[in-house]
């Protein structure tokens, strides 16, 4: 169970991904960092079960999402009663760069079910293959595909129906949305 400097470096390099995933999943910056911390501790404690050279990122993501869905989601539900305000406020606090884009992403992601959000983030945002995502989310390949498709369709629908300003869609997205809506 050698914990090589390489492995530590690799863990460190994965932290931004773990944080981005945790944050997008939970819309809560504090909770996201707690989740990453918990993930790193768990990973370290069972580093024996990780085979060096295999997909460390996928292994860590599995630990993180399992932790989130088993332990952390409850606390999120308690604060989920409000409309978009809460997430928006948290996002403004959390995103040091104050990117509106990131806030838009979180608000849009809240329109999805937990399953769909997870699937979309793994595949579309993180770039995991469907196979990897299915393994991480512990579901069938067909299920993950269907979740990603539904998530994409739902967000595409929102972009067209909601006020375009709300999403501050980029120029490409906006022209697409218009093309879909105008005669």
């Amino acid at each position: 169970m050698a914990i090589s400097p390489d492995l530590k470096a690799e863990l460190l390099a994965t932290i931004p991904n773990l944080r981005a995933f945790a944050f997008s999943l939970s819309s809560n910056a504090d909770l996201a960092d707690d989740l990453v911390q918990e993930t790193l501790m768990k990973a370290w404690n069972k580093i024996d079960s990780y085979e060096e050279g295999t997909n460390l990122k996928a292994w860590l993501f599995t630990i993180l999402r399992n932790t989130y869905f088993s332990q952390f989601r409850k606390s999120r539900r308690e604060v989920q009663d409000t409309d978009g305000d809460y997430a928006s406020r948290l996002t403004v606090q959390a995103s040091q760069q104050g990117h509106l884009d990131v806030q838009d992403l979180l608000v849009a992601l809240r329109e999805l079910t937990d399953d769909q959000r997870e699937a979309l983030l793994l595949v579309a945002a993180e770039g995991f293959s469907y196979e990897e995502a299915a393994e991480i989310a512990d579901c069938a390949l067909g299920t993950i595909k269907s979740r990603v498709n539904r998530a994409r369709a739902r967000l595409a629908e929102l972009m067209q129906i909601e006020s375009v300003d709300d999403f501050s869609i980029d120029s490409i997205g906006m022209s697409v949305a218009r093309a879909g809506r105008l005669p």
Partner: peptide, 17 residues
């Protein structure tokens, strides 16, 4: 439109990274 969603998500996510 669906492709645009994927791009948009990735773009925003990359800022988080």
């Amino acid at each position: 439109a669906i492709d645009a969603v994927g791009r948009k998500v990735k773009q925003s996510y990359e800022k988080l990274l």
